[in-house]
């Protein structure tokens, strides 16, 4: 029976122009999978497994791998010095991960005045209906939209998303932060001309720019969900 299962090819190796794809069957037991993976890789495949550095994508289909299990697979593949795992691809995630993804994608709506000393931190996009006073801070892992005047600190893309933007009805911040980039306000704001504005990281200039809100759809088309 064990022999028969081995012949079923639980592990399929495919070559693509970007490297190898390891297709791992998602119905057999994990022990069989490891065994077969080990056998396949230790078989002599000539130059394929001994040549120059090849990147590998591991596809696990509908099988959920714990960190420990994916560690074991990494270990086996790592025995071949020329193989480098690029990523794992799977059809399944845990409920916790799914909830996390949902949070990242949602727009959190908050209605309050963020006062000096207060920090409002959310996952995903933040829609603040109210002001951010000097000394107050708002943080979001996604984009920030303020329907009110932004006079404090705003930090969008806080977990590293440099595509995030910050928009405010009245843009008079003390500091703007997008991902790891920080921009200080000018020491004096001109009295007039603060219509609705939006801040983003400009690729050409490599720094945070502020511009009219009407041009945002050109710079960040991905904001559009329609």
């Amino acid at each position: 029976m064990a022999m028969a299962q081995k012949l079923q090819h639980n592990v399929t190796i495919k070559g693509t122009k970007d490297g190898l794809v390891l297709l791992l069957d998602d119905l057999c037991s994990f022990e069989h999978l490891l065994e077969e993976l080990n056998d396949k890789l230790s078989d002599d495949h000539g130059q394929l497994l001994n040549g120059p550095l090849i990147s590998v994508i591991v596809k696990t289909g509908n099988r959920y791998l714990t960190d420990q299990q994916s560690g074991l697979i990494r270990e086996i593949i790592g025995q071949k010095k020329n193989l480098e795992i690029k990523r794992f691809e799977t059809n399944v995630i845990t409920v916790a991960e799914a909830e996390e993804m949902k949070k990242e994608a949602q727009i959190m709506r908050v209605s309050k005045v963020v006062r000096s000393g207060q920090v409002l931190s959310v996952q995903g996009d933040l829609l603040l209906i109210g002001d951010v006073n000097p000394g107050g801070t708002i943080v979001a892992t996604g984009n920030i939209f303020v329907l009110g005047s932004l006079k404090g600190i705003a930090h969008s893309g806080s977990s590293g998303n440099r595509e995030a933007v910050i928009a405010a009805s009245v843009m008079k911040p003390t500091q703007l932060r997008i991902a790891d980039m920080i921009n200080r306000a000018p020491d004096h704001y001109p009295e007039h001309g603060h219509e609705m504005e939006c801040a983003f990281i400009s690729d050409e200039e490599g720094q945070i720019l502020i511009d009219r809100i009407s041009i945002v759809h050109k710079i960040r088309p991905e904001l559009n969900r329609l």
Partner: peptide
């Protein structure tokens, strides 16, 4: 005014 803002936040 800045400190008053902070205090209002704490009072809330």
């Amino acid at each position: 005014v800045r400190d008053a803002d902070r205090i209002i936040g704490l009072l809330e």
